[in-house]
Amino acid sequence: MENYKQIGVWIDHSKAHLIGFKSGQAKLLETVDSPYESIKRIDGEGKDMTRFSPNPEHASNNEHKKHNTTQNEINEYLRMMEHRLQPFEDILLFGPGTMKEKLKNRLKENKSFDGKWLSVESSDKLTDNQLLAFVRDFYKKESV
């Protein structure tokens, strides 16, 4: 990754943008697509209710299977991100939703990230230029 030590990661459930920062310049290094699918529907699949009750409070095993699949996909996504962030010293996580917090908690549990600098910021969806500006402004502000 071209010897970048500082990185900004805009992350949500569908994708992550890795933006490197070096010498006052920010550069989009990579976009990582998530294996997580928010809406799963298998052709021919019935409703998530029990056979004898139309009441949605009585969920079927299908609901548990979907939940486990979702958790496995999220864990795989976090594992991919953890592997990609290994070489960096300063890591800024930002974006909408809760995925940035999940990734931060996972990195804090990993001993190989001890001593690395982690920061979490909230932001909305941003254009490519706004992503670069967000990371550039953040690291310039931190270096002052």
Rank of each mutant, 00 (worst) to 15 (best):
E30L: 13
S112D: 12
I74R: 03
R41L: 04
E109Y: 00
H83E: 15
G115K: 00
L29R: 11
R84T: 10
F113G: 01
N68T: 05
H58I: 01
E89V: 10
E109P: 02
A59N: 03
L92D: 06
T31S: 14
D48K: 01
P87E: 10
L85F: 02
L103T: 09
E89H: 12
F113H: 05
M80Q: 09
E63G: 07
N62L: 04
T50V: 12
I74G: 00
A59R: 03
S34T: 05
F52S: 09
W117C: 11
D90R: 13
M99R: 04
S123F: 13
E82S: 10
M81C: 01
P56K: 10
D48E: 09
E30W: 10
G97E: 11
K116C: 10
K102E: 10
Q71I: 03
K104A: 14
L78H: 03
N105M: 03
S60Y: 01
S123R: 11
L85M: 07
S34K: 01
E73W: 09
S60H: 00
K47I: 08
T70N: 03
Q86T: 13
L118Q: 05
E76I: 06
Q71S: 00
E30V: 06
S119K: 14
L107R: 04
R106T: 07
G115L: 00
D33Y: 15
P56S: 08
R84P: 08
N61S: 02
Y77T: 05
K65E: 02
S122Y: 15
K111R: 10
N110V: 04
P54I: 11
K108T: 08
H67R: 13
E101D: 15
L103M: 08
E82V: 04
N110R: 07
D90P: 03
E63C: 01
S38C: 13
S123G: 13
K111T: 02
G97Y: 12
G44N: 08
E82A: 07
H83N: 14
P35H: 12
F94N: 10
N72L: 06
K100A: 11
H67D: 10
L92M: 12
N105H: 08
G115M: 07
S53E: 00
L92S: 09
M49F: 06
F113T: 07
T70H: 03
D114A: 10
P35V: 07
K66R: 14
E89L: 11
F88A: 02
P87Y: 10
E76Q: 11
N105R: 07
L78P: 05
F113D: 05
K40S: 05
A59L: 06
K40L: 03
E82M: 05
V32W: 05
F88W: 09
N75I: 00
N61Q: 07
T50S: 09
G46N: 00
L85N: 02
L92G: 09
S53H: 08
N72Q: 01
S34P: 04
E109I: 06
I74L: 04
E37R: 01
L103A: 01
E37V: 04
S119G: 15
D48N: 09
F88Q: 05
H83S: 14
M49N: 08
T69G: 06
K47H: 13
S119Q: 15
G44D: 08
L29P: 11
S60M: 05
E101V: 10
T50D: 08
D33T: 15
K116G: 03
S122P: 13
K104R: 15
